[in-house]
Amino acid sequence: MISYTIEEINAVLNGILVGSTSQKIEGPEELQKAKNHHITFIGSAKYEKYWADSEACAAIVNASITIEPGNNKAFIKVPNADLAMARILELFNPEPPILDFDIHPSAVVHTSATIGSNCKIGPHCYIGKDVVIGDNTILYPNVSIFDESTIGTNSIIWSGTVIRERCVIGNHCIFHTNVSIGADGFGYRPSDDGRGLVKIPQIGNVIIGHHVEIGANTCIDRAKFSSTLIGDGTKIDNLVQIGHNSILGRSCIIAGHSGISGSVTLGDGVIIGGASSVKDHVTIHSGATVGGKSGVISDVKSGQTVLGFPAQEARETLKQWAIIKRLAKK
């Protein structure tokens, strides 16, 4: 089992050590669940009251924390406890599942596919015609990569993921289980005789940049023509739907259960709260934030925060909610 002294952990964080503990630290844990071999964190003064009853031997704390650690306990004071704890989680992060072969015998790899060096391809994977996979990429069992798609270097594709034909994936990407990339966009029109629906062919693709992470069961549809685009560094949660021809900028964050309709444009650094929906052909400009469970039906200005259904400037929405509460009490 991995363990560290408090001094070894502080050497990683380069914080200010307050107090000391002889206890070896075997992992991080929540403040109220921690045992004496755990390190925890206190990111806000409102959690100080729980420290006295915590069994943790150490805590990473914001520099503003005023309490003392106590006997045989220690604090590491840092400017941002959340970011510091992320580094500690990396220290204790278990190794991922190991594939003991380069290409499993049960995998189907087309003779025209190009597989880079140090790749791992798990059982029952399918690699189609003219697929290109870059160096050091891992495909866990039951991944399907269809014809003419490209995956960059150092990417990790977890089980059940399907990447459809002609899609392009960048370097250092992580796709969690059952991600769908490049399924047909949702395009139908009423038939001339009014008796049914005509399917609109979707002949484009999906292009995903570098360092993109996509959560389990998320779907990103191919474009009707041209490409659905996901910018470098964007992080997408579980169970998110991104419609055809949408364009997402760099370092966007989209929380779970959100739906992005077709032909939506997000600028750089846009944040979409959980269970939100965005109408087709809407533009959300760089740095904007959409509060959880909001419905965006019109463009959002750069840096603006919107909230509600339909979404509008957050302070205006909060005022309206406050008025409704007062009316309900009368």
Rank of each mutant, 00 (worst) to 15 (best):
D147C: 09
N36Q: 09
N14R: 15
F309K: 11
A52R: 05
L89E: 01
I115L: 09
A74D: 10
L266F: 15
L229A: 01
D102Q: 09
K120T: 02
I260Q: 06
F146S: 10
S277W: 06
G209F: 10
Y47P: 02
T177G: 02
D135R: 05
I203S: 09
V290K: 08
T283A: 05
H176A: 02
D130H: 14
I208S: 02
D221F: 08
I200A: 11
K235E: 03
A74W: 09
V12K: 15
F101W: 13
G187H: 13
G152P: 05
L83C: 01
A328R: 14
H104I: 06
G291N: 13
K35I: 01
P79E: 15
P141R: 09
V296F: 08
K120Q: 13
T317S: 12
L248D: 10
V109T: 08
M85G: 00
E48M: 07
A45H: 04
G233F: 08
I230N: 02
S3Q: 14
A59N: 03
V18L: 11
I157Q: 11
E165A: 15
A216I: 03
M1D: 10
E30C: 00
A288S: 14
T161E: 03
V132M: 03
A255Q: 02
V61Y: 01
S22T: 14
S226P: 00
T177N: 11
E316D: 11
R195F: 05
R164T: 00
